[in-house]
C-alpha cells in the first residue's frame, strides 16, 4: 500500500483505503470522536459536581484569595499554543513532512509539560500556603478531582504524543555524537527505542487521532478556566 502511495501524485493515496468504510469516516477517527463525546459527559458531571457543591456548601476559604489568575491565564495561553502546534503537526503529517511533524510534536509536548508544571506548582501552592487539600473541604475535593482529572488527561496526551515522536525517529536516535563522544540517553532509549523507525505515511491518521484528543483536552480547559476560575471573580453569583 505504501509503495503504491509513493508512486502516485496524490499524497492522500496512502490514507484513501482507510476511508473506505460504510460511514465514509476512518474507523479510528470515528471511534475517537465517540470517545470524546463520552468524555464530554464525564467532564460535564465533574464540572457540575464542582459548581453544585460550590453553591450548596460555600467554602470558608475564598477561592479568589488563593487563585493566581495570571498563572492560570498563562497556562491557558500555553495550552492554546500547544493546540496550534498540534494542528500544524497534523498538517505536516498529511503532507508527509516527517521532520516538520516531529518538530511540531516536540513543541506540543514541551508546552504540555509546561502546563503540567504550572498545575503542579499551583497544587503545591494551594496545599502549602492555603492548606487546601483533597480532604480539607468540599471545595478542595471537587476542585482537585476536576483539575487533577484534566491534568491526567494532559499527561496521557503528552505520553501518547511522545510515543509518536519516538516512532518518527531513526533507529539509532539514542546515540548522539557531541565533540567526538557518544552519549547514551539510557532511560529514553529503554522506553522509546523499540518504537523508533516505525512511522509510515499511513500513520498520519493515528497522529490526527492523537491530535483530536489533544485538542479536546484544550477545549475542556477552556470550559474549566471559565467555570472554575473566572466565574469566581463575579461574586454576585455567590458560590
Amino acid at each position: 500500500m505504501s509503495s503504491h502511495a509513493a508512486t502516485t501524485d496524490d499524497p492522500h493515496a496512502a490514507l484513501a483505503p482507510l476511508k473506505k468504510t460504510s460511514t465514509g469516516v476512518e474507523n479510528k477517527k470515528l471511534a475517537m470522536w465517540a470517545f470524546l463525546a463520552s468524555d464530554c459527559m464525564f467532564f460535564g458531571t465533574l464540572i457540575s459536581t464542582h459548581l453544585i457543591y460550590r453553591k450548596v456548601y460555600p467554602t470558608v476559604v475564598e477561592p479568589t484569595e488563593i487563585f493566581d489568575i495570571e498563572l492560570t491565564a498563562f497556562s491557558s495561553f500555553i495550552l492554546l499554543m500547544s493546540s496550534l502546534l498540534m494542528a500544524l503537526s497534523v498538517s505536516a503529517a498529511h503532507k508527509g513532512n516527517i521532520a516538520g511533524m516531529r518538530r511540531f510534536l516536540l513543541g506540543t509536548i514541551f508546552f504540555g509539560l509546561i502546563f503540567l508544571s504550572g498545575q503542579v506548582y499551583e497544587f503545591n501552592h494551594f496545599v502549602r500556603e492555603s492548606g487546601l487539600t483533597l480532604s480539607s473541604s468540599v471545595f478542595g475535593s471537587t476542585f482537585y478531582v476536576l483539575t487533577g482529572t484534566h491534568g491526567v488527561h494532559v499527561a496521557l496526551g503528552v505520553l501518547w504524543l511522545s510515543c509518536w515522536t519516538a516512532c518518527t525517529l531513526p533507529k539509532d536516535w539514542a546515540w548522539y555524537t557531541l565533540k567526538g563522544r557518544r552519549f547514551l540517553w539510557l532511560p529514553f532509549r529503554v522506553v522509546f527505542a523499540p518504537m523508533t523507525g516505525r512511522y509510515k505515511h499511513e500513520n498520519a491518521l493515528d497522529v490526527e487521532v492523537a491530535g483530536l484528543y489533544w485538542h479536546f483536552v484544550d477545549v475542556v480547559w477552556i470550559v474549566i478556566f471559565t467555570a472554575v476560575y473566572l466565574v469566581e471573580y463575579l461574586p454576585v453569583f455567590g458560590f
Binding site: L36, S38, C40, M41, G44, I47, L51
Partner: peptide, 18 residues
C-alpha cells in the same frame, strides 16, 4: 458531518446534564 453529529450528541447530553 457524521463526526460533528457524534460529538454533538455527547456535548448536548453533557450540557443538558449540567
Amino acid at each position: 458531518a457524521l463526526c460533528t453529529i457524534v460529538f454533538l450528541i455527547g456535548l448536548i447530553l453533557a450540557t443538558g446534564t449540567v
